[in-house]
Design a protein around this nucleic acid. Sequence first.
DNA 1: TTACGTGCAAAATCTTTGCCCCTGA
DNA 2: TCAGGGGCAAAGATTTTGCACGTAA
Lengths: 134, 134
Amino acid sequence: MSETKMRYSKQREIIYEVLKNDMSHPSVDSIYMNVKKIIPDISLGTVYRNLNLLANQKKILRLDIGDGVVHFDARITPHYHLICDECGEIKDLFLDESLISVFIDKVQKESDEHIHNIDIVFHGTCQNCLKKKS
Amino acid sequence: MSETKMRYSKQREIIYEVLKNDMSHPSVDSIYMNVKKIIPDISLGTVYRNLNLLANQKKILRLDIGDGVVHFDARITPHYHLICDECGEIKDLFLDESLISVFIDKVQKESDEHIHNIDIVFHGTCQNCLKKKS
DNA sequence: TTACGTGCAAAATCTTTGCCCCTGA
DNA sequence: TCAGGGGCAAAGATTTTGCACGTAA
């Protein structure tokens, strides 16, 4: 994680652009396949390297939803995620931040540890799947 | 995940016992090493198979804290986890369930999806590390 | 007896990395 | 020029699985 100066690279730019235009919280492999459409001979290692780089710079988010694969998200404004247990999609949940901070404060009162941060993954049924069922 | 009848096995019993006596939310490898002290020739595959079996039966919990390794927990009463960012330990957080359900209800009101469940991982500093710092 | 369980090792995934060539500044 | 970046493939790390043998019921 040393602070080396970063130079421009076409690959990194395209990877970032592809991710910004992808609302599906894609896995590395999915990003790789989409970038390949633009730079056919890009390598998977380059995709991993740049995604990790961008994530370490906080330009993108690394998501761990517990499916054994890392997902990435170019939206860095505070938000949360809901996994639809029917279709598997990852939906964004933009919650009022006060809702979260009030919750953390309450938890803090019940805990001897010092809470800095919280990772939340909601599970449920998305709108689409709710419609299908009715 | 077919419903086959499960027969007794010494290995499964020991694995479960070892996990019940381990409060550290161990990884599979750590469980494997501890079980090996009792059954020296047990195989890693057997440990994986039985932990997955027990988790599917809800006798133990599978924890995904985002470190690339699965952890297991034999405590199945509702509780949450805090990762100490200083020492890396996983601490239990026994929270009043109403605290959680009130939070989920509030989130539900802001969401179009139907929320069934919530996975929370808190990050912070544990008591031990707080003491060391002061 | 007869499925289920195990040990072993190979395979399957997913991710990182070394090396040598390429390229931005 | 020259250090960072990329392609390629090998290596790592973690988890699953096929198979032949062992064992509970």
